[in-house]
């Protein structure tokens, strides 16, 4: 487990704050933007970043992240390049970074080598939505050896027994999708799902954050009331792709401020 990530989460929650994190596909909109975006997110006070490894067939993603992945691949984004960016970022910053992506690029890189190189670069955790618990279990020794968190996802349709199992084995936190569907859907926070998230408090001991389709301060507010924080992905990608490279720091600060008044 990554001490950096765990301590950051503990400190934030103990102070009565909520976690606010952002997903961005690495190498999007251009390779030169990744490091400035990470630095700007750090400066804007984001708690941690989910850095996306682009994949050709992102089945859990909606059109926005699909397009970002395609563009990033066309830009020549590869896993070794992403690890280099994290290593460069780490020279000046301690903001935790989680790599998020699909299994195949990681498998082809080699799971053991991936974990080792993540540790070396300063990656804190991974989220691989198509690597279910049953498959991940055998790989846990590699994650442990590299102090890498492996974060599981649950959804509003996940049965209670399964939620308990995943909560027990996830490290750092549990990632809850706001609805059953793909990323970036335009759905309001529904009564039924907010109740589901509120009920989680009684079921699990780990922190849990909500993601998928979050694009307004109103949603952030409602989800923060029933969870430990949120992650914003597609909305950030739609926003950042319109920004010229030079204005990234200011733009990112405005974006983060717009969704949460808490941090400046």
């Amino acid at each position: 487990m990554s001490q950096r990530l765990r301590e950051h989460i503990q400190r934030t929650l103990a102070g009565g704050d909520k976690l606010f994190s952002v997903y961005i596909t690495a190498g999007f909109p251009e390779k030169a933007a990744t490091l400035p975006i990470l630095q700007a997110l750090d400066a804007a006070g984001v708690d941690f970043v989910e850095l996306g490894i682009p994949f050709s067939d992102p089945i859990a993603d909606g059109p926005t992240i699909q397009a970002a992945s395609t563009r990033a691949i066309e830009n020549g984004t590869t896993l070794p390049w992403i690890l280099e960016q994290v290593a460069q970022f780490r020279r000046h910053s301690q903001m935790p970074i989680i790599l998020m992506g699909y299994l195949n690029p990681v498998l082809q890189y080699g799971m053991e080598r991936f974990c080792r190189d993540c540790q070396q670069a300063g990656v804190d955790g991974v989220i691989l939505p198509d690597l279910p618990f049953e498959e991940a279990h055998a790989l846990m020794p590699f994650f442990h050896a590299a102090d890498l968190d492996n974060i599981y996802l649950i959804a509003p349709n996940t049965p209670p027994a399964r939620i308990r199992l995943l909560a027990e084995h996830t490290t750092a936190f549990l990632y809850c999708t706001a609805y059953t569907g793909v990323t970036g859907a335009n759905r309001a926070a529904e009564q039924q799902t907010t109740q589901f998230f509120a009920a989680l408090r009684e079921m699990v001991d780990v922190p849990y954050i909500i993601g998928f389709g979050i694009h307004s301060a109103e949603q952030v507010h409602r989800y923060n009331a029933v969870a430990d924080g949120v992650v914003v992905g597609s909305a950030f990608i739609r926003f950042i792709q319109q920004q010229p490279l030079a204005s990234i720091p200011d733009a990112v600060r405005t974006f983060v401020k717009g969704l949460t008044q808490r941090k400046h």
């Binding site: 089945i59 939505p129 279910p132 049953e134 996802l153 959804a155 349709n157 399964r162 995943l166 999708t177």
Partner: peptide, 19 residues
């Protein structure tokens, strides 16, 4: 029982599809 044809097959899907 886990859906494997020796080393091939399995169930590499997001949690949402599991049920």
């Amino acid at each position: 029982d886990a859906g494997y044809f020796d080393e091939f097959g399995g169930q590499f899907v997001p949690e949402i599809l599991r049920p």
